[in-house]
């Protein structure tokens, strides 16, 4: 278990080259994810608290642009 997970946080990685701007992550967790002017994903926090919403956003990303990674 990484340090982040021990603290009850997860490390989220967003690949903007893969992102198609569907906005599903913003719908799931708008305190963690946002879209820039091009509609592509930006992270508001890189190590958000571990939550169902964040996992749902990662699993639900249509283009597979999001993942949870060890720090």
């Amino acid at each position: 278990m990484s340090a982040a997970e021990q603290d009850g946080q997860v490390h989220v990685v967003a690949d903007r080259d893969t992102c198609i701007g569907a906005g599903m992550c913003v719908m799931s967790a708008d305190d963690v994810f946002d879209q820039d002017d091009d509609g592509l994903v930006t992270l508001l926090v890189e190590d958000p608290p571990d939550s169902t919403a964040v996992h749902r956003a990662v699993a639900g990303c249509p283009s597979g642009a999001l993942r949870i990674a060890p720090r």
Binding site: I20, A22, M24, M27, R56, P62, S63
Partner: peptide, 19 residues
């Protein structure tokens, strides 16, 4: 109800107009 269904498809062709 929650996201995770495939009504809008999935992958790169996921419905552009879904929002």
């Amino acid at each position: 109800g929650a996201i995770g269904h495939l009504a809008f498809g999935h992958g790169i062709h996921h419905c552009l107009g879904a929002p």
